[in-house]
Nucleic acid binder design. Structure first.
Lengths: 97, 97
DNA sequence: TACATTTGACCAAATTAAGTCAAGTCAAAT
DNA sequence: ATTTGACTTGACTTAATTTGGTCAAATGTA
């Protein structure tokens, strides 16, 4: 599940049009279309609006949003999974400091 | 192990000074100091030079370099580990498409 | 002292973010 | 068969941020 998919899911479940949600977010509908297909990242602030609008956990949206950023960084790498493991170890290690 | 630590390790093992390695990389020694302490990221191209200079696996350097970028992105997040899990699932999922 | 390294403040250039607009697609209704 | 409405796409723009550094001063350290 990506942040884009989640937003689309929330929107469609309430029968809202892209145009309508875009209006709430104060962006154009073309931009929202790209957000839902993960071609663009939305601002973190928009997560707040979405969270309130659909009464959906902000924290979960934030996790998906961050995961999407990580994904963007390594999606084209063959070693993507290994990279994540190394990053994970680093996080765990530095937590203990 | 971070990319900065690895570079320092390689440099020190050969008794090289920051100034000397910096010269090879055509950067200032202050900048190299920051690279070794992960305050700055080096260019991917520099990995090639380092790999050749110390005869150390390019692929491993690249993994550390990428992991460092991922780390930078989520280091301040409480949910860092969870974010990595979500990103990992996304990578695995999209690979099967 | 002198050499190696680190740090903070700063900078220009390159990149990314955050969009827009117009044209195009696609399905359903007319 | 054409219109309509929802959505998508590509090309573009502008502003903000990041990258990739530098220099001078401070801090170890032998």
């Amino acid at each position: 599940m990506t942040i884009g998919q989640k937003i689309r899911e929330l929107r469609e479940k309430t029968g809202m049009l892209q145009r309508e949600l875009a209006y709430e977010l104060k962006v154009g509908d073309a931009y929202l279309s790209k957000i839902e297909s993960n071609q663009k990242n939305l601002k973190k602030e928009h997560l707040t609006t979405i969270s309130k609008l659909f009464k959906y956990s902000y924290s979960e949206l934030e996790t998906l949003w961050l995961a999407n950023k990580v994904y963007d960084l390594i999606k084209d790498e063959k070693k993507a999974i290994e990279v994540l493991k190394v990053a994970e170890q680093e996080i765990k290690y530095r937590k203990t400091l």
